[in-house]
C-alpha cells in the first residue's frame, strides 16, 4: 500500500531534533501502552505484520501528527475491534458489556522473561532454491498492492545488486492478510544513491531487504 508511513525519500519533513538525555517515556501512560501492545500481541490474535498494517492504515493526517505511542494506542484499539475482542461501545466508555472471546493464550508474569528472550524468529525452511545469487543485478518490480507490503516505494523499478542472501523468511504481504506465512527468499539489495535519487552529493548506497517476489531479472549491469 502506498501509505503515509512509507516515508523514505519524502521531502519537507524538516530537521531532525534529537533530544538530549531523552527519557525512555515522556509520560507514564506511554509505558502502559507499550506493555498493553506487547501483552495483547502475546494473545496470538494477530501477527506482527497485521499490527503494522493496522497502524499504516490509520488516517494519514493522524499518523503524521500523532506521537509514536499514540499511534500504537490507536493501532491497538483498531486491532481489538477488528478481532471482536472489544466492541465500539466498550471502547467509548470502557465498561465491559460482552464476554471475552477465546484467545490463544494469556501471558503470565513468569512467562514474560523467557518469551521476550526467545523472541519470534521468522526464518523458515526453503521449499525451493533461491532464484538470485550474491553479485547479481536485479530490478524491483512495479508492484503496487493495496494491501500491506514491506517494499518501500522509493526503490520500485530501480536496479540494484544482490549484496546478501538472508535466508527464507515469512512473507509479510501474505502474513498481514492472515493468509499464512508463505515463506520467501529474502535478499539485501544494494542500490547506488545516484540510481535512486539522480544527481546526489553522496556516492554511497542504500541497502534494502527485499523478498524474492519483489524482484525480477534484468540485463542491466
Amino acid at each position: 500500500m502506498d501509505g503515509v508511513h512509507d516515508m523514505g525519500g519524502q521531502q519537507c519533513h524538516g530537521v531532525i531534533e534529537p533530544e538530549i538525555d531523552e527519557p525512555l517515556f515522556h509520560d507514564s501512560w506511554e509505558r502502559r501502552v507499550l506493555g498493553l501492545v506487547l501483552a495483547c500481541g502475546a494473545t496470538g490474535s494477530w501477527n506482527l505484520d497485521e499490527s503494522r498494517f493496522a497502524r499504516e492504515t490509520l488516517p494519514p493526517a493522524f499518523y503524521l501528527s500523532a506521537s509514536y505511542y499514540r499511534i500504537w494506542l490507536a493501532g491497538l484499539e483498531k486491532l481489538l475491534l477488528q478481532n471482536q475482542m472489544v466492541t465500539a461501545e466498550e471502547l467509548s466508555d470502557f465498561k465491559m458489556r460482552e464476554p471475552a472471546v477465546p484467545v490463544k493464550r494469556v501471558v503470565k508474569a513468569e512467562q514474560v522473561a523467557p518469551m521476550l528472550a526467545s523472541g519470534a524468529p521468522v526464518d523458515r525452511e526453503a521449499a525451493a532454491k533461491a532464484l538470485y545469487a550474491v553479485g547479481e543485478m536485479v530490478r524491483v518490480r512495479n508492484y503496487q498492492p493495496q494491501t500491506h507490503t514491506r517494499l518501500p516505494g522509493y526503490i520500485r523499478g530501480h536496479v540494484g545488486r544482490v549484496a546478501l542472501v538472508q535466508g527464507c523468511h515469512v512473507y509479510p504481504d501474505s502474513n498481514s492478510l492472515g493468509m499464512g506465512e508463505n515463506p520467501q527468499w529474502l535478499y539485501c539489495i544494494e542500490f547506488q544513491s545516484a540510481e535512486l535519487w539522480g544527481d546526489t552529493e553522496n556516492s554511497g548506497s542504500v541497502m534494502v531487504d527485499c523478498w524474492e517476489p519483489y524482484l525480477e531479472k534484468t540485463d542491466s549491469k
Binding site: W29, R31, R32, V33, L34, G35, L36, L38, A39, C40, T43, L73, L76, E77, L80, M85, V86, E90, L91, F94, K95, M96, P99, A100, V103, V106, V107, K108, A109, Q111, V112, A113, L116
Partner: peptide, 26 residues
C-alpha cells in the same frame, strides 16, 4: 489508557502482573 487497561484485564486478555513484567523488562 488506564480505562483500556482495566477493560482488558477485566476481560481476561491481559494479566496485570504480566503487564508490569513486560514493561519492567523493556
Amino acid at each position: 489508557v488506564r480505562a483500556l487497561e482495566s477493560l482488558l484485564v477485566d476481560k481476561g486478555y491481559v494479566d496485570a502482573a504480566a503487564l508490569d513484567a513486560l514493561i519492567e523488562n523493556c
